[in-house]
Protein backbone atom coordinates (compact mmCIF):
# COMPACT_ATOMS: atom_id res chain seq x y z
CA UNK A 1 0.00 0.00 0.00
CA UNK A 2 2.77 2.41 0.72
CA UNK A 3 4.48 2.00 -2.65
CA UNK A 4 3.56 4.68 -5.11
CA UNK A 5 1.88 3.04 -8.06
CA UNK A 6 0.59 5.28 -10.84
CA UNK A 7 -3.18 5.33 -11.18
CA UNK A 8 -4.60 3.09 -13.85
CA UNK A 9 -5.92 5.85 -16.01
CA UNK A 10 -2.49 7.28 -16.71
CA UNK A 11 -1.14 6.20 -20.08
CA UNK A 12 1.61 3.64 -20.20
CA UNK A 13 5.04 5.20 -20.39
CA UNK A 14 6.41 4.93 -23.93
CA UNK A 15 8.13 1.60 -24.21
CA UNK A 16 8.90 1.59 -27.90
CA UNK A 17 12.54 1.42 -28.84
CA UNK A 18 14.08 4.22 -30.89
CA UNK A 19 14.26 2.01 -33.97
CA UNK A 20 10.49 1.79 -34.42
CA UNK A 21 9.98 5.56 -34.30
CA UNK A 22 11.76 7.87 -36.64
CA UNK A 23 10.58 10.91 -38.50
CA UNK A 24 12.94 10.87 -41.45
CA UNK A 25 11.10 10.75 -44.78
CA UNK A 26 11.18 7.28 -46.28
CA UNK A 27 11.84 8.48 -49.80
CA UNK A 28 12.37 11.64 -51.78
CA UNK A 29 8.99 13.36 -52.34
CA UNK A 30 9.19 14.32 -56.01
CA UNK A 31 5.81 16.12 -56.39
CA UNK A 32 6.31 18.24 -53.33
CA UNK A 33 9.72 19.28 -54.66
CA UNK A 34 8.33 19.86 -58.15
CA UNK A 35 5.50 22.17 -57.05
CA UNK A 36 7.57 24.23 -54.66
CA UNK A 37 10.07 24.62 -57.48
CA UNK A 38 7.35 25.59 -59.94
CA UNK A 39 5.91 28.31 -57.70
CA UNK A 40 9.42 29.62 -57.08
CA UNK A 41 10.15 29.76 -60.80
CA UNK A 42 6.90 31.59 -61.51
CA UNK A 43 7.81 34.20 -58.91
CA UNK A 44 11.30 34.58 -60.33
CA UNK A 45 9.84 35.00 -63.81
CA UNK A 46 7.61 37.89 -62.67
CA UNK A 47 10.46 39.57 -60.81
CA UNK A 48 12.68 39.03 -63.85
CA UNK A 49 10.26 40.80 -66.17
CA UNK A 50 9.89 43.74 -63.79
CA UNK A 51 13.64 44.08 -63.25
CA UNK A 52 14.29 43.89 -67.01
CA UNK A 53 11.81 46.64 -67.78
CA UNK A 54 13.01 48.90 -64.97
CA UNK A 55 16.70 48.36 -65.71
CA UNK A 56 16.17 49.00 -69.42
CA UNK A 57 14.40 52.28 -68.69
CA UNK A 58 16.79 53.42 -65.97
CA UNK A 59 19.98 52.57 -67.88
CA UNK A 60 18.80 54.21 -71.10
CA UNK A 61 16.93 57.10 -69.56
CA UNK A 62 19.11 58.18 -66.66
CA UNK A 63 21.78 59.92 -68.73
CA UNK A 64 19.22 62.11 -70.51
CA UNK A 65 17.66 63.38 -67.29
CA UNK A 66 18.95 66.70 -66.07
CA UNK A 67 17.61 69.63 -64.13
CA UNK A 68 17.24 71.43 -67.44
CA UNK A 69 15.17 68.52 -68.78
CA UNK A 70 12.61 68.47 -65.94
CA UNK A 71 12.37 72.25 -65.52
CA UNK A 72 12.06 73.48 -69.11
CA UNK A 73 9.02 74.32 -71.13
CA UNK A 74 10.03 73.10 -74.60
CA UNK A 75 9.70 74.88 -77.91
CA UNK A 76 7.32 73.49 -80.47
CA UNK A 77 10.05 71.21 -81.78
CA UNK A 78 10.44 69.07 -78.71
CA UNK A 79 12.29 66.25 -80.46
CA UNK A 80 15.67 67.91 -79.97
CA UNK A 81 17.42 66.27 -77.03
CA UNK A 82 19.49 69.37 -76.24
CA UNK A 83 16.73 71.92 -75.82
CA UNK A 84 13.64 69.96 -74.89
CA UNK A 85 12.07 69.61 -71.43
CA UNK A 86 9.13 67.95 -69.77
CA UNK A 87 7.97 70.50 -67.18
CA UNK A 88 4.51 71.04 -68.74
CA UNK A 89 3.99 67.27 -68.91
CA UNK A 90 4.98 66.79 -65.27
CA UNK A 91 2.64 69.60 -64.24
CA UNK A 92 -0.19 68.35 -66.49
CA UNK A 93 0.01 64.74 -65.32
CA UNK A 94 0.27 65.75 -61.65
CA UNK A 95 -2.67 68.15 -61.91
CA UNK A 96 -4.97 65.74 -63.67
CA UNK A 97 -4.21 63.04 -61.08
CA UNK A 98 -4.74 65.42 -58.16
CA UNK A 99 -7.99 66.85 -59.56
CA UNK A 100 -9.18 63.31 -60.27
CA UNK A 101 -8.45 62.27 -56.66
CA UNK A 102 -10.43 65.24 -55.34
CA UNK A 103 -13.47 64.02 -57.27
CA UNK A 104 -13.16 60.26 -57.08
CA UNK A 105 -12.56 59.87 -53.34
CA UNK A 106 -15.75 61.59 -52.09
CA UNK A 107 -17.99 60.06 -54.76
CA UNK A 108 -16.49 56.60 -54.31
CA UNK A 109 -16.59 56.73 -50.52
CA UNK A 110 -20.18 57.97 -50.43
CA UNK A 111 -21.25 55.25 -52.86
CA UNK A 112 -19.49 52.61 -50.78
CA UNK A 113 -21.13 53.94 -47.61
CA UNK A 114 -24.51 53.71 -49.28
CA UNK A 115 -23.86 50.15 -50.43
CA UNK A 116 -22.53 48.83 -47.12
CA UNK A 117 -24.36 50.91 -44.52
CA UNK A 118 -27.69 51.92 -46.00
CA UNK A 119 -28.73 49.70 -48.91
CA UNK A 120 -30.44 46.45 -48.00
CA UNK A 121 -27.99 43.75 -48.95
CA UNK A 122 -30.56 41.52 -50.53
CA UNK A 123 -32.42 44.12 -52.58
CA UNK A 124 -32.31 44.07 -56.35
CA UNK A 125 -31.27 47.73 -56.49
CA UNK A 126 -28.11 46.95 -54.51
CA UNK A 127 -27.39 43.98 -56.71
CA UNK A 128 -27.76 46.11 -59.84
CA UNK A 129 -25.49 48.83 -58.44
CA UNK A 130 -22.85 46.23 -57.49
CA UNK A 131 -23.02 44.67 -60.95
CA UNK A 132 -22.73 48.12 -62.53
CA UNK A 133 -19.66 48.94 -60.43
CA UNK A 134 -18.00 45.66 -61.34
CA UNK A 135 -18.75 46.10 -65.03
CA UNK A 136 -17.48 49.67 -64.94
CA UNK A 137 -14.11 48.21 -63.92
CA UNK A 138 -14.10 46.06 -67.04
CA UNK A 139 -14.83 48.80 -69.58
CA UNK A 140 -11.85 49.52 -71.88
CA UNK A 141 -10.26 52.87 -71.08
CA UNK A 142 -10.70 54.23 -74.62
CA UNK A 143 -14.45 53.87 -74.12
CA UNK A 144 -14.15 56.10 -71.07
CA UNK A 145 -12.37 58.62 -73.28
CA UNK A 146 -15.24 58.61 -75.75
CA UNK A 147 -17.74 58.83 -72.90
CA UNK A 148 -15.87 61.85 -71.52
CA UNK A 149 -16.01 63.54 -74.90
CA UNK A 150 -19.69 62.81 -75.40
CA UNK A 151 -20.91 63.49 -71.89
CA UNK A 152 -18.59 65.98 -70.20
CA UNK A 153 -17.53 68.08 -73.18
CA UNK A 154 -20.40 67.91 -75.64
CA UNK A 155 -23.17 67.74 -73.08
CA UNK A 156 -22.10 69.27 -69.74
CA UNK A 157 -19.49 71.67 -71.14
CA UNK A 158 -21.59 72.94 -74.03
CA UNK A 159 -24.55 73.53 -71.74
CA UNK A 160 -22.37 75.38 -69.25
CA UNK A 161 -21.18 77.66 -72.04
CA UNK A 162 -24.76 78.26 -73.11
CA UNK A 163 -25.86 79.03 -69.56
CA UNK A 164 -22.92 81.36 -68.93
CA UNK A 165 -23.42 83.06 -72.34
CA UNK A 166 -19.78 82.52 -73.26
CA UNK A 167 -19.13 83.97 -76.73
CA UNK A 168 -16.53 81.29 -77.44
CA UNK A 169 -16.26 77.74 -76.10
CA UNK A 170 -14.71 77.81 -72.62
CA UNK A 171 -16.03 74.60 -71.09
CA UNK A 172 -17.33 72.94 -74.23
CA UNK A 173 -13.87 71.83 -75.34
CA UNK A 174 -11.20 69.44 -74.07
CA UNK A 175 -9.95 70.65 -70.70
CA UNK A 176 -8.08 69.58 -67.59
CA UNK A 177 -11.31 69.27 -65.61
CA UNK A 178 -12.96 66.97 -68.15
CA UNK A 179 -9.90 64.72 -68.44
CA UNK A 180 -9.76 64.50 -64.64
CA UNK A 181 -13.47 63.73 -64.37
CA UNK A 182 -13.20 61.06 -67.04
CA UNK A 183 -10.35 59.46 -65.09
CA UNK A 184 -12.42 59.77 -61.91
CA UNK A 185 -15.27 57.83 -63.54
CA UNK A 186 -12.78 55.22 -64.70
CA UNK A 187 -11.18 54.74 -61.26
CA UNK A 188 -14.46 54.92 -59.35
CA UNK A 189 -14.79 51.10 -59.04
CA UNK A 190 -11.33 50.85 -57.47
CA UNK A 191 -12.22 53.33 -54.75
CA UNK A 192 -15.69 51.89 -54.19
CA UNK A 193 -14.46 48.32 -53.83
CA UNK A 194 -11.54 49.25 -51.56
CA UNK A 195 -13.78 51.39 -49.35
CA UNK A 196 -16.47 48.71 -49.19
CA UNK A 197 -13.90 46.13 -48.12
CA UNK A 198 -12.55 48.37 -45.38
CA UNK A 199 -16.06 49.23 -44.16
CA UNK A 200 -16.99 45.57 -44.03
CA UNK A 201 -13.85 44.78 -42.05
CA UNK A 202 -14.97 47.01 -39.17
CA UNK A 203 -16.41 44.80 -36.41
CA UNK A 204 -20.21 45.10 -36.22
CA UNK A 205 -19.79 45.33 -32.45
CA UNK A 206 -18.39 48.86 -32.81
CA UNK A 207 -21.44 50.04 -34.73
CA UNK A 208 -23.75 48.37 -32.20
CA UNK A 209 -21.87 49.95 -29.29
CA UNK A 210 -22.25 53.38 -30.83
CA UNK A 211 -25.93 52.96 -31.66
CA UNK A 212 -26.66 51.53 -28.21
CA UNK A 213 -25.23 54.72 -26.71
CA UNK A 214 -27.87 56.67 -28.56
CA UNK A 215 -25.83 57.73 -31.58
CA UNK A 216 -27.66 58.15 -34.86
CA UNK A 217 -26.57 56.12 -37.84
CA UNK A 218 -24.93 59.19 -39.35
CA UNK A 219 -23.01 59.95 -36.14
CA UNK A 220 -21.89 56.32 -35.99
CA UNK A 221 -20.65 56.41 -39.57
CA UNK A 222 -18.87 59.75 -39.21
CA UNK A 223 -17.32 59.25 -35.78
CA UNK A 224 -16.69 55.51 -35.51
CA UNK A 225 -16.82 53.82 -38.89
CA UNK A 226 -15.11 56.28 -41.24
CA UNK A 227 -12.05 57.02 -39.06
CA UNK A 228 -11.43 53.29 -38.84
CA UNK A 229 -11.92 52.84 -42.57
CA UNK A 230 -9.56 55.69 -43.49
CA UNK A 231 -6.46 53.57 -44.20
CA UNK A 232 -8.53 51.28 -46.46
CA UNK A 233 -10.03 54.27 -48.25
CA UNK A 234 -6.53 55.64 -48.81
CA UNK A 235 -5.45 52.30 -50.24
CA UNK A 236 -8.26 52.72 -52.76
CA UNK A 237 -7.00 56.22 -53.50
CA UNK A 238 -3.44 54.94 -54.01
CA UNK A 239 -4.63 52.25 -56.42
CA UNK A 240 -6.70 54.83 -58.30
CA UNK A 241 -3.71 57.19 -58.59
CA UNK A 242 -1.46 54.38 -59.83
CA UNK A 243 -4.00 53.35 -62.42
CA UNK A 244 -4.76 56.88 -63.59
CA UNK A 245 -1.25 58.32 -63.74
CA UNK A 246 -0.19 56.16 -66.67
CA UNK A 247 -3.48 56.12 -68.58
CA UNK A 248 -3.54 57.89 -71.91
CA UNK A 249 -6.66 56.67 -73.67
CA UNK A 250 -9.24 58.40 -71.41
CA UNK A 251 -7.58 61.81 -71.80
CA UNK A 252 -7.01 61.55 -75.54
CA UNK A 253 -10.26 63.27 -76.50
CA UNK A 254 -10.95 65.02 -73.23
CA UNK A 255 -8.06 67.34 -72.46
CA UNK A 256 -4.55 66.42 -73.52
CA UNK A 257 -2.72 68.69 -75.94
CA UNK A 258 0.02 67.85 -78.41
CA UNK A 259 1.80 71.05 -77.59
CA UNK A 260 1.21 74.08 -75.38
CA UNK A 261 3.55 77.01 -75.04
CA UNK A 262 2.62 77.64 -71.42
CA UNK A 263 1.60 75.72 -68.33
CA UNK A 264 -2.14 75.18 -67.72
CA UNK A 265 -3.53 78.06 -65.62
CA UNK A 266 -7.16 77.11 -65.31
CA UNK A 267 -9.35 74.01 -65.08
CA UNK A 268 -10.70 74.83 -68.54
CA UNK A 269 -7.19 74.80 -70.07
CA UNK A 270 -5.78 71.91 -72.00
CA UNK A 271 -2.58 70.34 -70.74
CA UNK A 272 0.38 68.26 -71.85
CA UNK A 273 0.83 64.82 -70.38
CA UNK A 274 3.78 62.49 -69.81
CA UNK A 275 2.05 59.34 -71.05
CA UNK A 276 0.71 61.02 -74.15
CA UNK A 277 4.09 62.67 -74.72
CA UNK A 278 5.71 59.22 -74.73
CA UNK A 279 3.26 58.24 -77.47
CA UNK A 280 4.02 61.43 -79.42
CA UNK A 281 7.80 61.01 -79.11
CA UNK A 282 7.67 57.42 -80.28
CA UNK A 283 5.36 57.96 -83.23
CA UNK A 284 5.83 61.54 -84.44
CA UNK A 285 9.57 62.02 -84.30
CA UNK A 286 11.34 62.93 -87.54
CA UNK A 287 14.55 61.35 -86.25
CA UNK A 288 14.03 58.27 -84.14
CA UNK A 289 17.67 57.78 -83.12
CA UNK A 290 17.94 61.34 -81.86
CA UNK A 291 14.65 61.16 -79.96
CA UNK A 292 15.31 57.81 -78.29
CA UNK A 293 17.19 59.16 -75.20
CA UNK A 294 14.49 61.71 -74.41
CA UNK A 295 11.84 59.05 -74.97
CA UNK A 296 13.50 56.86 -72.36
CA UNK A 297 13.97 59.83 -70.06
CA UNK A 298 10.31 60.79 -70.35
CA UNK A 299 9.23 57.24 -69.48
CA UNK A 300 11.58 57.33 -66.49
CA UNK A 301 10.13 60.65 -65.34
CA UNK A 302 6.62 59.18 -65.62
CA UNK A 303 7.68 56.17 -63.54
CA UNK A 304 9.32 58.36 -60.91
CA UNK A 305 6.30 60.66 -60.76
CA UNK A 306 3.89 57.73 -60.30
CA UNK A 307 6.21 56.27 -57.71
CA UNK A 308 6.47 59.62 -55.90
CA UNK A 309 2.68 60.15 -55.87
CA UNK A 310 2.34 56.64 -54.42
CA UNK A 311 5.03 57.18 -51.80
CA UNK A 312 3.38 60.39 -50.61
CA UNK A 313 0.02 58.63 -50.30
CA UNK A 314 1.57 55.63 -48.56
CA UNK A 315 3.38 57.88 -46.07
CA UNK A 316 0.16 59.71 -45.25
CA UNK A 317 -1.62 56.38 -44.80
CA UNK A 318 1.14 55.13 -42.51
CA UNK A 319 0.72 58.23 -40.37
CA UNK A 320 -3.04 57.75 -40.19
CA UNK A 321 -2.59 54.08 -39.25
CA UNK A 322 -0.10 54.95 -36.54
CA UNK A 323 -2.43 57.57 -35.14
CA UNK A 324 -5.37 55.15 -35.18
CA UNK A 325 -3.35 52.49 -33.44
CA UNK A 326 -2.03 54.85 -30.79
CA UNK A 327 -5.25 56.68 -29.95
CA UNK A 328 -7.89 57.07 -32.59
Amino acid sequence: MNTLTPPEYLPEPPSSSPTTRHFRAEKFDFWSFFFSGLTGLATLFIIGILVTILLNIIVNGWSAISWHFVSTIPKKDFFDANTTGVLPMIVGTSFRVIVMTIFVIPVGVITAIYLTEYAANTSNVTRIIRAAVNNLAGVPSIVFGLFGLGFFINFVGKHMDALLHNPTAVWGQPALIWASLTLAVMTLPVVIVATEESLKAIPPGLREASLALGATKLETILKIVLPQALPGIMTGGILAVSRAAGEVAPILFTGVAYYMASLPQHLSDQFMDLGYHVFVLSTQSPNIEQTRPILYATVLVLLILTFALNIVAILIRARVRKKLRALG
Binding site: P203, L324, G328
Partner: peptide
Protein backbone atom coordinates in the same frame (compact mmCIF):
# COMPACT_ATOMS: atom_id res chain seq x y z
CA UNK B 1 -22.54 43.40 -25.02
CA UNK B 2 -21.22 39.88 -24.75
CA UNK B 3 -17.99 40.65 -26.51
CA UNK B 4 -16.37 43.74 -25.05
CA UNK B 5 -16.35 46.32 -27.80
CA UNK B 6 -14.43 49.41 -26.76
CA UNK B 7 -13.92 51.93 -29.54
CA UNK B 8 -10.37 52.00 -30.87
CA UNK B 9 -9.88 55.30 -29.10
CA UNK B 10 -8.37 56.31 -25.80
Amino acid sequence: FQKSNPFPKS
